[in-house]
Simulated assay, not measured.
Amino acid sequence: MIAADALRLDGLTHGFFTREGGHSSGLFSSLNCGMGSGDDRETVQKNRALVAERLGVAPNCLLSAYQEHSAEAALVTGPWPDEAERPRVDGLVTRTPGVALGVLTADCGPVLFADPEARVIGAAHAGWKGALTGITTRTLDLMEAQGARRARITAVIGPTISQAAYEVGPEFPARFTAADPANARFFAASERPGHAMFNLPLYLAHRLGAEGVGTVVNLSLCTFSDERRFFSYRRATHRRETDYGRLISAIALT
């Protein structure tokens, strides 16, 4: 588990969990927390229970949504009655003690948020699509509706694919520059003509700052290049592997 100094705050527990220390094997070795993967369901539940224990919450209080690369967020007040009732969103917010908000990633950006004074926390799954369409904005809006203030919020970007590993096609930068021509700064030339290298974590950090977040931290950890610690969808795709594990990043009020 990786802890961010900026989130070592009274009344909070958090962690950007690596792939190490779990029960899974093979492609999912070993702390795979993705219920949507092809891993054994009971094994994944055991892995998630380890995470919940580390965070100091009950296993059924480690909550993650049905992620769809959207810009939608939901308020959480407690465990959903069953797995089928998970909201289809990419951001979660709570002010309920004993609840841990988790996001699952394998190259996308996990972002954990906290306003310790208001005792409001959030978590967002920010791939390129969610980042561009406003998942961080929506999560912050929902936190403010619960009493948080952006200037007091700390946001930390966890392990994410780095620019050096994130090559995109010719149509990709146009989506970002159409939204704001200044977004061209987040792309560098690729060795392949017409392609570019996208800096997702830097784009997220810039966006969070522009949205008024008081403290923004990027851990600058690359999921693609650090196979020992992190799962990576893109690495698995390059190898033509049939599946991949999911990392979990989570935060809880105590």
Rank of each mutant, 00 (worst) to 15 (best):
L219Q: 07
P201R: 06
S24D: 12
E53T: 13
N60S: 08
F17I: 03
F198M: 13
S25H: 14
H69A: 12
L101M: 07
G78D: 02
T94R: 02
P173M: 13
I135R: 03
A148P: 05
G147Y: 08
P79N: 09
L101T: 05
F186I: 11
V99D: 07
E171M: 08
N60M: 10
F186E: 12
P79W: 09
I161K: 01
L31E: 05
W80N: 11
F231A: 11
R149T: 09
T13K: 10
V216W: 10
A100I: 05
W80K: 10
E72P: 00
H14F: 02
L55S: 10
R88P: 01
E144L: 06
A58Q: 13
S25N: 11
A118S: 05
E211I: 01
A145T: 08
A4T: 12
G78Y: 05
E211M: 01
A179H: 12
L202Q: 15
T160M: 01
V44P: 03
A155S: 02
E68P: 00
S25Q: 15
G127L: 06
A164N: 03
M35K: 02
G34F: 04
L9T: 02
Y233E: 14
A236P: 02
N218I: 07
R185T: 13
L208Q: 02
V216D: 08
D180I: 07
T43M: 06
L221F: 00
G130S: 10
V51P: 04
P81D: 13
S225Y: 01
F186N: 11
R41T: 08
L31V: 03
A49Q: 09
S29H: 15
E68Q: 08
S190N: 08
Q45Y: 08
D226R: 01
A65D: 08
A210W: 08
P110D: 11
F16L: 04
G212T: 06
L27N: 06
F231E: 11
N32I: 11
R175V: 08
E211P: 00
I157N: 03
A236D: 11
R8C: 07
R8I: 06
L7F: 05
V44I: 13
D226W: 01
Q146P: 04
T137R: 12
A52S: 01
R239S: 13
S190W: 07
T242K: 15
R185A: 15
R240D: 14
I2R: 13
D226F: 05
Y233A: 14
A151K: 12
R239C: 14
F224Q: 06
R175Q: 14
A250E: 09
S25D: 14
G21A: 09
G38D: 06
L50C: 02
T160I: 11
P159H: 00
R239A: 15
S70F: 00
F113S: 06
E20K: 15
D39R: 00
R239Q: 15
T154W: 04
R152I: 00
G245W: 13
Y244T: 15
R235G: 04
A179G: 06
R152N: 12
T237L: 13
A184Y: 02
T237P: 00
